[in-house]
Design a protein around this nucleic acid. Structure first.
Lengths: 100, 100
DNA sequence: ACATTATATCGATATTTCGCGATATAGTGA
DNA sequence: TCACTATATCGCGAAATATCGATATAATGT
């Protein structure tokens, strides 16, 4: 866990909002039947909520992934992103230890 | 508490380090006798530890203060900065609520 | 009033980040 | 192979941030 990367990734309100949205799958349109067993949300759905360009959202998700805060799973053409709850907790613990 | 300002202020390793140093007054040279009753550390001492220019450190402290994470108290020519423990806790709670 | 000290602010330049459109990559299916 | 879809990456200009030296402000002491 690189605390610098994580804080940078969180230093943007839309990226934080994406993390919040990802807490609840029902914030997004229903998954296609063939993806019903996959956990996570595809980039296009996140883009639709964020109202930013595809390239920007893809870059955002890479930042969050490189910070460890989300995990990515590729299924065919789709990449599904989901929260990495352990890493998120670890981050909060680290920041708390550091600055408390 | 503006969470955006606070995260921005913390999005820099030296500013975080300053917050850590401020936990313990003994990280800095002893206070002058006439300041023995004042809590907080003057800019010059912080600058010495941070090894950055006076203007940079002054700007850093303003960022931390505007984020609410530290408090400033002017005594004569000196400005003494100290951690705002309540605000720091509030920040951690807010971030935790938001992203947990 | 003047010199000195501590801090804050200004102005400049350098670096980083933002967000986009265009393009590349990769998978799907006719 | 060819079109189509989903995502990733590239290259750009704009905006924000970093850091400095110079200067302004304010307090102190002679």
């Amino acid at each position: 866990m690189d605390i610098d990367k994580a804080i940078s990734a969180l230093n943007n309100p839309v990226r934080r909002q994406i993390l919040i949205w990802l807490k609840d799958r029902s914030n997004f349109p229903p998954a296609l039947p063939e993806h019903s067993e996959v956990s996570g949300v595809c980039v296009a759905y996140i883009q639709e909520k964020a109202e930013l360009s595809q390239s920007t959202v893809s870059t955002y998700m890479k930042l969050l992934k490189d910070a460890g805060l989300v995990e990515a799973e590729r299924h065919g053409q789709w990449t599904f992103y989901r929260r990495n709850e352990k890493a998120i907790q670890q981050f909060l613990n680290l920041v708390g230890q550091e600055i408390s």
